[in-house]
Design a protein around this nucleic acid. Structure first.
Lengths: 209, 209
DNA sequence: CTTTTTTTGTTCCAAGTCGCATAAAAAGAT
DNA sequence: ATCTTTTTATGCGACTTGGAACAAAAAAAG
């Protein structure tokens, strides 16, 4: 991590036996396992099976179970942020932008191969948060970052006359986040993608006045 | 269970050794344990410690771990419904009623002895839902029941002229539920009660137009 | 070809977890 | 007092889980 003299492609081979896996890919696969059954409900054997790595290799690469989870959680936030920011940055009306954001969220929530798993954070980290300040912090920071993205967009919209001048960007942002949270929860409890999209559309209508 | 000839107070003592616990109390204590650490994160020994019952007694009274959890979940829904309905039934303006509902929810979310645990359903059942159709169903049914309560109140408000005639009670109901969901999530991730109450007030302002 | 380095794969260990079998206790019924 | 019924309490056995030790494998370096 420290002395990367060259970029990263076609780097001179390190020294010992080469890895049989790509760390980033393996982490995603580990996250998928946690996503399905939560932190406590997922054993290292499950992760081992999901990644194809054996337990000692897992440990060497990512640390113990808790460390693997935290890395998976952080990686998920990055993925989610990237998708959200991309949606926020497209231009269009406020309503259009919000729907792009919600559609991007739905794409993630419904990305499971066989089951619908909703949001990794809402579906797994929320359970662990009370007993684990570190996770609680990561979760809260992520929520606040998204709140801020929404708020910035609403401020911009108010400036552009898309919202009434007395609209409260912060209040609207929390409502927009709430909409995403309820979508995450309901996705995991069996509501269809079509239904959730309609829910989002109705929410956008109310929020945009 | 079959032949209860008398009501239930001062009943003639059954026959064998009397129970050393009250089933309803024990179930609440078991729920508290699950509430803290989730389904998979709570062992039967944890529940045994929380209730003061030993494992065989637990099994005889409530069944295996999964049955205990389902009973605790159903019991929580009853508790929550009772609190919500009571809040809905108080008279007052729409805004007042909504705030009473949210305050009632906060009372439950912040009822933990040492930690803030949010909503039992959002905090623990959502994790288990994808892999368990029975839990998924119980969760979804509960959400829909609350959605319906909100919707009924919004319909009434529209009829009474508290809302504009073109207001959409169903859309508003889902937004009101969303607000409760985000409160449940954020409570468990460390947001203070005061902050959540302000969030609710802002949401009510937007929802009531 | 041998040495060094890094990762893989097997195996073991201690603790935890769950269900069950069995004994002990506490009450009413006879 | 003894028997029956119901619950509590103890303990056992099989399995799971997380961690670590250790040897084998794969590659570069000398």
């Amino acid at each position: 991590m420290r002395l990367g003299t060259k970029k990263d492609k076609a780097e001179k081979r390190p020294r010992g036996r080469p890895r049989a896996y790509e760390p980033q890919t393996a982490l995603r696969q580990a996250a998928e396992a946690f996503w399905k059954t939560g932190y406590a409900g997922t054993s290292l054997d499950d992760i081992s099976a999901a990644t194809g790595m054996n337990r000692p290799s897992l440990r060497a690469a990512f640390g113990d179970k808790h460390e693997i989870y935290v890395k998976a959680l952080s990686d998920y936030w990055e993925l989610k942020f990237a998708a959200m920011r991309k949606a926020f940055e497209t231009d269009g009306t406020l309503s259009e932008t919000l729907m792009r954001v919600y559609d991007a969220a739905l794409s993630i929530y419904f990305s499971g191969d066989d089951q619908v798993l909703g949001c990794f954070v809402v579906g797994t980290a929320i359970t662990e948060a009370p007993g684990n300040p570190e996770i609680q912090r990561i979760v809260a920071d992520g929520f606040h970052a998204l709140d801020a993205d929404f708020e910035a967009r609403f401020k911009q919209a108010r400036g552009a006359g898309e919202l009434k001048q007395d609209a409260d960007p912060q209040a609207l942002a929390l409502l927009a986040s709430a909409t995403m949270h309820t979508m995450a929860i309901r996705a995991r409890s069996g509501t269809s993608r079509e239904n959730l999209r309609m829910l989002a559309q109705n929410a956008v209508k109310v929020i945009c006045g």
